[in-house]
């Protein structure tokens, strides 16, 4: 089916590009990923993106493997595997090749310049990621005020709890899911 092939190529384009733009870690591409998958390509809704992102926090291993679910939404099983391949393979290949060359440049002063220069940009991107997911998951104008109070409260409580004590975040997320099931119906 040519329509499916077209969708798969779009998925490949978007996620391979995101793979190579993930400066300082996977979370840096969340804002761009949300924009591309929701507003540009309509593969998922904003609320679905937030849910899928949070499911990624519940699985073991790299927490960005949830991109596969977006691919599944867009193009079924083929989309699942294609998106995971597109998201992991380019960056992994780049690291393989560059780390090969890098050994001889280990003490090159520019490495430090790149790392320190990109650090604040990564932080800006992570903040944009909080905004991209939070604008539907924490404060959603389509929901009643009490509902937004609860979701904002969950987020703030987690920030405070994690600064206070080292708790496994997966447990906190499950707890909020359980409380949400009671309170947010």
């Amino acid at each position: 089916m040519p329509e499916t092939i077209k969708e798969l190529i779009e998925l490949l384009n978007v996620f391979a590009m995101l793979s190579l733009m993930a400066v300082g870690g996977g979370t840096a591409v969340i804002p761009q990923m949300e924009h591309e998958t929701v507003a540009v390509h309509h593969w998922v809704t904003s609320t679905q993106f937030a849910s899928i992102y949070s499911l990624g926090q519940l699985a073991p291993g790299p927490n960005m493997s949830m991109v596969g679910i977006i691919g599944y939404h867009a193009a079924g099983a083929a989309g699942f595997f294609l998106v995971l391949f597109a998201f992991y393979f380019p960056a992994c290949m780049l690291t393989y090749v560059v780390s090969h060359i890098w050994d001889s440049y280990r003490d090159n002063p520019w490495r430090d310049a790149v790392q320190r220069g990109l650090a604040p940009i990564t932080i800006g991107l992570m903040l944009a990621g909080v905004y991209a997911v939070g604008k539907t998951a924490s404060f959603n104008p389509d929901r009643p005020l009490w509902f937004n109070g609860v979701t904002l409260g969950f987020g703030l409580a987690i920030v405070l709890l994690l600064f206070w004590k080292r708790i496994n975040p997966a447990i906190l997320i499950l707890a909020c899911g359980a409380i949400g099931w009671y309170v947010l119906r």
Partner: peptide
């Protein structure tokens, strides 16, 4: 409803990591 709670929590998690990594920046 459970997913709404889970997603709200994930935002808190992401914000905490951002604040921790950002720190004095």
């Amino acid at each position: 409803a459970a997913l709404a709670g889970v997603a709200a929590a994930a935002v808190g998690l992401l914000l905490q990591v951002t604040l921790k990594i950002g720190g004095r920046s």
